[in-house]
């Protein structure tokens, strides 16, 4: 057993612990938007109405942070099964990290900034 910082071990644990949180977080989100409200009722007005309640913005930030990091790390773990060699792996890790950071920043900016009515 080694005691130094182990990223892959931490990522392994992250996938499992975040899974427990994502069950209620994702399912409640999907049940409300896809089943109760319905995809055909989504609109700019609906998002504005939803985000008028700050609790839902906090909820969506959690969703964004946990679901997308779980998803992108999962993608990384799957691709690592196909990509061997330390240089391609480093490149892949970098690309996925950059994509994760970019989309998380994009989503977080929208949630915090809110709907800008045209």
């Amino acid at each position: 057993m080694e005691n130094k910082f182990n990223f892959e071990g931490l990522a392994w644990k992250w996938m499992r612990y975040s899974a427990f949180l994502l069950i209620p977080l994702v399912w409640i989100h999907a049940i409300i938007q896809a089943l109760i409200v319905g995809g055909h009722n989504l609109s700019l007005d609906y998002v504005a109405m939803r985000w008028a309640i700050w609790g839902w913005r906090v909820y969506d930030i959690f969703l964004l942070a946990f679901a997308f990091s779980h998803g992108m790390n999962g993608l990384r773990q799957v691709l690592m099964d196909f990509v061997k060699g330390s240089r391609p792996r480093r490149l892949l890790n970098g690309l996925i990290f950059f994509a994760w950071l970019l989309l998380t920043a994009l989503g977080a900016t929208a949630v915090i900034g809110g709907v800008r009515m045209p």
Binding site: V47, L103, T109, A110, V115
Partner: peptide, 8 residues
């Protein structure tokens, strides 16, 4: 995420 962020 990309589509929803269009609202901003």
């Amino acid at each position: 995420i990309i589509i929803t962020s269009l609202v901003f």
